[in-house]
Amino acid sequence: MTTIEPATASPPRRNFADSLRGWLPKLVLAPSFAVILLFVYGFILWTVYLSFTNSRILPVYKLVGFDAYVRLWSQPNWYMAMKNLAIFGVLYIGICISIGLGLAILMDQRIRAEGILRPIFLYPMALSFVVTGTAWKWFLNPGLGIENTMHNLGWESFKFDWLVNPDMAIYTVVIAGVWQASGFVMAMFLAGLRGIDGEIIKAAQIDGAPLTKIYRRIIIPMLRPVFLSAFIVLAHMAIKSYDLVIALTGGGPGNATELPSTFMYSYTFTRSQMAVGSASAVMMLMGITAIIVPYLYSELREKR
């Protein structure tokens, strides 16, 4: 054994390798973070800036104040887009959650064929909105689609022209959207149902509660977090929704199915009103931020 010199409080002896070891994780993360900083947050600021200019076909960088916002809110098209978003959003979210929850409850009754049925309800989620739009455009085709089928079945007076009817076209977007997403909502609710402690339900059964009461009073209230998640996901999809409208109706007939997303695109890239387009993008961003940020904040806060 060696005799020990009383070691004095050692000075920091960090060599290059040691300091590299300390920096390495940050160096690895840095490119990704830099890219996000520039291409997400930098670009958002850029877009915000553009919305305060009078850029038309090309960006100009002279600030003109709120001019673009004034013009945006004086566009009948924008009002149409907002109105449609309200209709689409409310119906899309409401129907998806109702059907999703209903399907999940049905599927939770110890269904033998669950393994077959579940993928059937969920597969539309794997499809591109463009494919969904194309399929439903054909399915709802006033001449050859569902209307024709009904006539062939003998229901001669059946009329289904929503796709070309400016008053009803937005509802076709709702139908196709619900078809695509409701299976996913079902999967979310089903996961929630499976996560409920079976003993609680056994206790309720022993207490003498009938099945409908068990669902109304115990199970559905316990699914509150799933309702919240489903709402967030669907609201977010509704605001961003672009492809589906383009493929299904192209925003028409006329401007009957205009949504903020299609408005932004057409004003920016085809109507050469870049400042107004930017202003509408900023409005969309604000809408989503208002929904997502509180949600993310609460989700991240819970964990340490």
Partner: peptide
């Protein structure tokens, strides 16, 4: 979660 419309022009 940002709407990509908000980065479309700069991109």
């Amino acid at each position: 979660f940002i709407p990509f419309q908000a980065v479309l022009i700069p991109m």
